[in-house]
């Protein structure tokens, strides 16, 4: 704790940004501390989840600059929940719909000025992996199926967490995932990924 305060003061005095060390407290503890008015707890939450949020935002927007906007908007939204924020499951399940909705809003706003044609409620293809065969196949899945596949295998969310994040029953999550994997298994190009 002393070290965190020292670093916070150091950052404040020197005017440089240094990521704080990994806070040993859990997300639940950090949320509780932030509810009590501890800014360093929120800072720790930000540094713990910012990379995942940025990656998710990039996946949703397909644009690095827009992803940065989404990152800031998402954590401003989280900040607005304090005090009184109740974390009932993993923070990822709270952040996921926020990132998704903010991404849609940012893309819509961007298209308003830039004249984009892509529908806002669909995920764009990954920027850095458009040539990837697996990505091409996954992109061919229905939107709802693709989303649960990515949440499960990229974001590492459990089935229950996917259900909470999307606001759908567990049975629906399992059904979508089962159908998506069955479709992928039928493709000989990706069958090797299912081998043990």
């Amino acid at each position: 704790m002393v070290r965190i305060f020292y670093l916070a003061e150091h950052v404040k005095l020197r005017g440089v940004t240094v990521d704080p060390p990994n806070d040993p407290r859990s997300d639940q503890d950090l949320v509780a501390a932030a509810n009590g008015g501890d800014p360093s707890a929120f800072d720790a939450l930000y540094h713990r989840h910012k990379a995942w949020v940025l990656s998710l935002a990039t996946r949703f927007t397909g644009d690095a600059d827009q992803a940065l906007d989404v990152l800031q908007e998402t954590f401003i939204y989280l900040l607005s929940k304090f005090p009184g924020f109740k974390l009932t499951s993993r923070l990822s399940t709270f952040l996921y719909p926020a990132v998704k909705n903010i991404s849609i809003a940012v893309r819509r706003k961007s298209a308003k000025f830039g004249g984009g044609q892509q529908p806002f409620d669909t995920l764009p293809a990954p920027v850095a992996a458009r040539q990837n065969e697996l990505v091409a196949i996954v992109s061919g899945l229905p939107e709802t199926h693709r989303e649960v596949v990515l949440m499960r295998f990229v974001d590492g969310l459990s089935l229950e967490e996917i259900g909470v994040a999307l606001g759908i029953p567990l049975g629906t999550v399992k059904s979508r995932l089962h159908n998506a994997l069955a479709t992928l298994r039928e493709d000989p190009r990706v069958q090797r990924f299912f081998e043990p």
Binding site: V16, L68, L71, N132, V149, F153, L181, F193, F194
Partner: peptide, 23 residues
């Protein structure tokens, strides 16, 4: 499915640097 998970993570995870101004 570990292999599928690794392949998808590699394809979809973006490791962009976050500018200090954002932090």
């Amino acid at each position: 499915f570990p292999k599928l998970g690794d392949a998808l993570s590699a394809a979809y995870t973006h490791h962009a640097a976050i500018p200090t101004s954002v932090d």
